[in-house]
Amino acid sequence: MAEQIAENQDNSEYGRLLGQEYLTFSLGDEHYAVDILKVQEIRGYGAVTKIANAPSFIKGVINLRGVIVPIIDLRIKFNLGKAHYDEFTIVIVLNLANRVVGMVVDGVSDVVSLAGDEIKNPPDFSANFDSEYILGLATVDEQMLIIADIEKLMSSEEMALVDKTRARAE
């Protein structure tokens, strides 16, 4: 009980640190937000080269101006929405810890500025999107935004984006 009170007190402090701009995107019916400073660019989906023996949510690699960038589909990874690809399919290219990763999303919605106290601590729940990778929740225009710790997610072993030894070292 005491812990919980302490946590609530920390809440505003916790949130203030996060007060900044976020890029919001949708996956199925859910809305997510990532730190805009981690976003390198947004581009269309196309010309993906499949990789041998890769999990299904890793769509392959693309050539991003001479750099080979892996593309993952979060919709497949988290069973959200239908994974179909057309000319409107969007890839958010993220720059995380000197690695470039592209993620396929259903759509990019907006850039929102969230003040620290607008972000609430996530409750503990079990979901595909493990709460470990959620920094907080916020409400914008009566919609719940899930603020994702995208760096932690992408470097997790679960995503198989990084060599195991490297993942551990990081």
Binding site: A47, I51, V61, I68, V69
Partner: peptide, 27 residues
């Protein structure tokens, strides 16, 4: 020759990647 490991990981049976004239990646 381009590194696949810079942003991804080692892939068995593949030593690297390259970019073809079409702009596509080939392993």
């Amino acid at each position: 020759i381009k590194s696949l490991e810079a942003n991804y990981r080692k892939v068995d049976g593949v030593s690297g990647a390259t970019i073809l004239g079409t702009g596509r990646v080939a392993l």
